[in-house]
């Protein structure tokens, strides 16, 4: 047993005949922000539920905070903070009561949760809405309240399942800022997401999942370096003068032809663009950008991440 907060070996989850998680190894260290990146149905949420001790594993080994979820579920859950994919706030209670009562589920004393709730309302910027019911809050506010609620027991490990799905850009950035603040305070976090920018912003290390297995692992920079090139040249052609893939491949390390555009993977986008021009190819538009995790995912699975 290392000092990892989560350690999984050949972890599997089957629902009937469908195997959602097909043998994964995961190690999450103290203090890091670890990500599961993958499309819907990749097995991220099933993995998260197993780590959260609300879904028994089918086979393999799993240790969370040094304990076995099958045996010590309640003791582990006492030290976890969970932000589920869909908000499940208590709509019959006020914003403040949502925090206080939730704290009481952990067996925390009344005085402690009262002080903690006041502190978390500040953290979530919801102090002014403290006595309101939950229902009229905006999506971003509900999400912040859900995150605040997950912190009521000062968790050692925070599990965030798709924390910003469905939020507008402004609300996302405010949430990312709050999560970054938690990271600085040393809270270990596990995040699932199908947004590359979110994974790149937040995660120290991540695994890319597809079809229930891990297809790559590393820091965002490592993954990009290993599986992609420094730059990407995105080209759009008019349908009538779309060149053959072979004509493009001469000017790049690798080419992906998508329905609406071609991606040329190259160390120097500007130079490849000049070479194409010299060869007489005339795209409607050309854009040079840095590689992202989206490119890594495309390379590894042959599919785009968000369809």
């Amino acid at each position: 047993m290392g000092d990892g907060l989560v350690q999984a070996r050949d972890l599997r989850k089957r629902f009937g005949t469908f195997e959602a998680v097909r043998g994964i190894d995961v190690d999450v260290a103290q203090g890091e922000v670890f990500g599961f990146l993958g499309p819907n149905g990749a097995g991220k949420s099933s993995t998260m539920r197993m780590i959260a001790c609300v879904s028994p594993r089918t086979s393999g080994s799993l240790q969370v905070l040094g304990m076995d979820p099958d045996r010590d579920g309640p003791r582990i859950r006492a030290r976890l903070g969970v932000v589920p994919q869909l908000d499940n706030l208590d709509t019959e209670l006020s914003v403040r009561e949502n925090l206080e009562i939730y704290g009481r589920y952990f067996g925390l004393p009344r005085r402690h949760v009262r002080a903690k709730a006041a502190e978390l309302l500040e953290f979530a910027r919801l102090t002014e809405r403290a006595e309101d019911r939950v229902e009229p809050l905006s999506g971003g506010m509900k999400r912040r309240l859900t995150i605040a609620r997950s912190l009521v027991n000062d968790p050692d490990l925070l599990l965030l399942d798709e924390p910003t799905t469905g939020l507008d850009p402004q609300a996302r950035h405010l949430l990312w800022e709050r999560l970054y603040q938690l990271k600085r305070e040393g809270v270990t976090q596990i995040i699932t997401t199908h947004y590359m920018d979110e994974a790149e912003q937040l995660c120290d290390r991540l695994v890319v999942m597809d079809g229930g297995v891990i297809v790559a692992e590393g820091s965002p920079a490592e993954l990009i370096e290993r599986w992609s090139t420094r730059e990407v040249l995105e080209l759009r052609f008019a349908p009538e003068d779309r060149p053959a893939a072979a004509d493009l491949e001469r000017h790049a390390e690798r080419v992906e032809v998508l329905p609406d555009r071609a991606l040329l993977y190259t160390a120097d986008g500007e130079r490849s663009q000049a070479a194409l021009h010299a060869a007489g190819l005339r795209p409607l538009s050309a854009l040079v950008r840095r590689s992202t995790l989206e490119d890594v995912f495309l390379r590894l699975t042959g599919r785009t991440l968000v369809d």
Binding site: P74, R75, R77, F106
Partner: peptide
Amino acid sequence: YNRLYDAMLATPLG
């Protein structure tokens, strides 16, 4: 609809 019990099961409650 509320998924209230899911929220409770994320705590030590069973």
